[in-house]
Nucleic acid binder design. Structure first.
Lengths: 142, 142
DNA sequence: TTGTCAATATCACAAAATGTGGTAAAGTAG
DNA sequence: CTACTTTACCACATTTTGTGATATTGACAA
């Protein structure tokens, strides 16, 4: 299942002008005009095919549309986006580095994150039962 | 420029069957067949409009395709996906129910999951430093 | 082997979405 | 006001998708 994650990370998402317009709020006329003016650069997957707009271009369109309302700078927005992705990466790392066991019994799911580093002999186990979550230490049983 | 981030985070990206096929590697025939079998559920933004596939559906398609490529039947793939989503839900629940703190200092990110239920007075803290992950107990400091 | 079913491919036609060039209208700066 | 920028709108061609029908392929049981 590892390559699912790899694939999702490398998704080269792009979309047509309709979806682009729906998401960004810019009209198709605007998008085409901004392209003519050299501000954005759609791509084509195949010769003769329709234009497609990448996520990067999407972002640019949103920013262009909002530029008049000068709140944060673009750099500031980049900062905050970075933090967001840092948080997501943290959880991804925790799972990939520490997940020892994952079991479902009845309506309980147990996540084992392995030995507590400064309390040897004990594993850290998280039990979820519906919305109820318990963080527990459990004596090692090798 | 705050709404740029809000918009990016809440991007309700969806795509047509062509882009979906290009990204996932599944043929349009497969995608339509899997829909007919009830494994995936495209949406329509507007009555009479074309079908659109969300990122969540994309993920599902990629997973199904992997199982199929591995030789599983479609029915079996459906079974296994259910378990997969149960696992994902588990982590989502853990985060939403137990996440107390999340801090970045230098190159260390600390995740605090709150008190260890059967070791009162101690919090469970997970420290990540790059790929290095430590699961630690830490005396409560109220 | 034959028959059956799951899974995918292919085809034809209708409908939806997009590309493009042209023109009009609205807004803006001089 | 005039010139220029920006956006809307329209028509027609092309591309993309939806859908139902039919064919093909492979696995498996009788």
């Amino acid at each position: 299942m590892d390559n699912v994650i790899m694939k999702l990370k490398s998704l080269n998402i792009s979309m047509g002008i309709g979806e682009t317009s729906r998401i960004t709020g810019a009209t198709t006329t605007q998008i085409r005009y901004w392209e003519k003016k050299g501000l954005i650069h759609p791509i084509r997957h195949e010769e003769g095919g329709n234009k497609r707009y990448s996520l990067k271009t999407l972002t640019k369109i949103i920013i262009i549309k909002n530029f008049i309302d000068d709140g944060y700078t673009l750099a500031k927005a980049g900062e905050m986006i970075k933090t967001h992705y840092q948080d997501v990466d943290t959880f991804r790392t925790i799972v990939s580095q520490r997940l020892v066991g994952l079991s479902h019994t009845d309506n309980v799911t147990r996540v084992n994150l392995g030995e507590i580093d400064n309390d040897p002999g004990f594993d850290l186990v998280i039990e979820t039962r519906g919305q109820d979550v318990k963080v527990l230490k459990r004596a090692r049983q090798d």
